[in-house]
């Protein structure tokens, strides 16, 4: 089976947030539930200040700490494709996975709304889901954390499992430019205007993602944690680099 992975070329990323928007629409996420996000950072102090950005999906790690810590095995690593998914039927909402994720990519949306009006009350649900948006994706698979989540569970990026898992057998690179495969490309990859994102089989020696990783020396975020992300970043040019630090600016560390 394939081990799906993503490559993000930071030299090409313009920080336009098209990926974030596409992900939110594709997966019906709530405001603040940014399964995919482009993070912005300000670095330096006036007058030598720069703004940088950093796209951050779930890393779908090879050895995910969120899976190890889950006391109910609700979070699991799918052996068919290497997706890290959440079974909402098993999740008890203990939030240990959120605490144990070094990348901050998990969300517990029963908490206070980040913006008003609270969209959950604007489109209330009557079937124990968090909300009932006027448009819903056709997919609903609580055992894989796809669809509108019920109350009291943690949600996360699925690598668009509902699209990728239906890719034709033998597909190596899911590229939106290949007509027969474009419906199987993750939403964030498909919409990326500068084509900074690539998706393919990390286990296939001839996949384009592997070529990119080799040619441009792809790196993984916080590799020292041992989580071994399946998302690789390319940088080294004049644009944004992989941040060594998590989120705060230099001035905050003094």
């Amino acid at each position: 089976m394939a081990k799906w992975g993503m490559v993000i070329d930071l030299d090409k990323c313009t920080g336009c947030q098209a990926c974030t928007t596409a992900c939110t629409m594709e997966n019906n996420r709530l405001p603040g539930e940014n399964w995919q996000d482009v993070l912005f950072y300000t670095e330096g102090t006036y007058p030598n200040v720069s703004m940088k950005w950093f796209p951050r999906p779930c890393m779908h790690c090879e050895h995910p700490s969120c899976v190890s810590v889950c006391p109910t095995k609700a979070t699991y690593k799918d052996p068919n494709g290497g997706f890290v998914l959440v079974d909402w039927n098993k999740c008890i909402g203990c939030k240990y996975c959120q605490v144990a994720c070094p990348y901050g990519v998990r969300f517990y949306m029963d908490e206070r709304a980040v913006i008003q009006p609270d969209i959950r009350t604007v489109f209330p649900s009557n079937n124990d889901r968090l909300w009932d948006p006027p448009y819903k994706g056709p997919q609903d698979d609580p055992s894989r954390g796809i669809g509108i989540q019920p109350h009291g569970v943690v949600s996360k990026c699925t690598f668009c499992y509902h699209k990728v898992s239906k890719a034709p057998a033998g597909a190596v690179d899911l590229d939106e430019d290949i007509r027969e495969l474009k419906e199987h490309v993750p939403a964030c990859v498909r919409v990326c205007p500068p084509k900074a994102r690539f998706f393919g089989d990390l286990d296939h020696p001839d996949s384009y993602v592997n070529k990119l990783i080799a040619d441009k020396r792809g790196v993984r975020l916080k590799d020292e944690t041992g989580n071994k992300p399946q998302v690789y970043y390319l940088s080294g040019g004049a644009a944004a680099a992989v941040p060594a630090l998590r989120s705060m600016t230099d001035s905050d560390k003094s």
């Binding site: 482009v38 950072y41 300000t42 990348y103 901050g104 989120s247 705060m248 905050d252």
Partner: peptide, 12 residues
């Protein structure tokens, strides 16, 4: 210390 939250959480 926020984990990769960018300007959503720029400080402690």
């Amino acid at each position: 210390v926020p984990m990769f939250k960018g300007t959503w959480a720029p400080d402690l």
